[in-house]
Design a protein around this nucleic acid. Sequence first.
DNA 1: GTCTATGATTTGTATAGTTGTATAGGATAA
DNA 2: TTATCCTATACAACTATACAAATCATAGAC
Lengths: 236, 236
Amino acid sequence: MNKTPIWKSIALSLTSDIAEGRYQTGDRLPTEAQLAATHGVNRHTVRRALSDMADQGLVHSRRGAGVFVATRPTEYPIGKRVRYHKSISASGKMPGKKILALTTRAADEAEADALGLETGDTVHVYDGLSLADGQPIGLFQSVFPAKRFPDILQILTETQSVTKALQRCDVPDYTRISTRLTARAATATQALHLHLSEGAPVLFSIGINADPEGNPVEYGRTTFAGERVTLTLNED
Amino acid sequence: MNKTPIWKSIALSLTSDIAEGRYQTGDRLPTEAQLAATHGVNRHTVRRALSDMADQGLVHSRRGAGVFVATRPTEYPIGKRVRYHKSISASGKMPGKKILALTTRAADEAEADALGLETGDTVHVYDGLSLADGQPIGLFQSVFPAKRFPDILQILTETQSVTKALQRCDVPDYTRISTRLTARAATATQALHLHLSEGAPVLFSIGINADPEGNPVEYGRTTFAGERVTLTLNED
DNA sequence: GTCTATGATTTGTATAGTTGTATAGGATAA
DNA sequence: TTATCCTATACAACTATACAAATCATAGAC
């Protein structure tokens, strides 16, 4: 793993503050003591960062007065922009999809609980990969109750779209009744599928979709590539 | 004939010291050198024991400072609509906030855009740490337009709560009009604050809150410890 | 109004202590 | 053999504390 010294991370943070205009040339930075408190470190560690920035000519300090912004960084590494914004409500409507597996098996406890089944009831499972511009952005698994949707796997081979498949199963519309989100580290297999390195941050989402009557129809788990995806939650 | 490694017995001894309350949460343990001397072993052997205890979440060490008894690890859900305070105390945990910094500075492009200001307009900034049972779960930054809320920093020193501070600024209620979420790797300073190791997955959230008239009042950025936080989105 | 004294604030410097990491090597058991 | 456990040494990174030196704001004297 990367072992960035803390002072370097602080220097980078302050440099970006200057680069993005939060502190402008001539402005006084917060005092060393304040910066130390903000970053949760000792004052000397802040001084190490400021010293580095002073060497680069970004800031200059005057004893008793403070630290002032000298110039804006000429060359600041702009973070890779996140390219794909995906709305959480538009789960099944992604541009590209690749079917990885279509299986029928017994439901585990979490799945049964979410779908209102008994543990061991059979479910149809759709494993797939979401793509955008040919790049993998999400690894998903959709679980459907087999009893209610006996032919859904067959239909999915034709449409690949969960929304359309459910429509052809007499579920014209569905809504998300529950979502849980957390950040995790990519496992080896996830990394492989999503073209990430193992341990890279991924966004893990668990959601339950239900028909207009409130009966759960799909239990979905998705792992998004953190580097390439931003979820936008739109409240109407 | 003792088959158990020395480090394991040291770890056990220290663990029972903690269990019996000889060292309480937050207390600093004796230095590695002292522990090595009292146990009559090399410092590295002590480190092996401490490393094992750290893996179990019993202790937490800070370079240069010492080894401290860790607060017990727990998981906390957070609602999207529900205010932080409410959702945490509903799960039976003691919520808390720690002010890291209160600053006034120029708005960068993103902040100005979100709050409907011009780049360079002054904003008030609240940097803080969200805690639950003393355990850090999120690192946040709230940005307010200085023109509309000239005294908000003063108020925040008293309440620490964004909701209450806005209430005292004649914003009785506000709603989230935009949320963006992604997974990232913790930087060195974030890791320090959140008691994670560098590169650990964190959940990064950018949100805009607006008053009932739709005028943006707060631009917030939060970094959640992925290990300890699950966001649950309750769509009504 | 201007000058000056004073005290608080802020940066600069010094010293010592503590944890993190790297390297090397000996002892013991599978 | 190989792996694990433990020792030994050295240095880097960070913390803690204290004090000195420069700056600034303010009050009081003139």
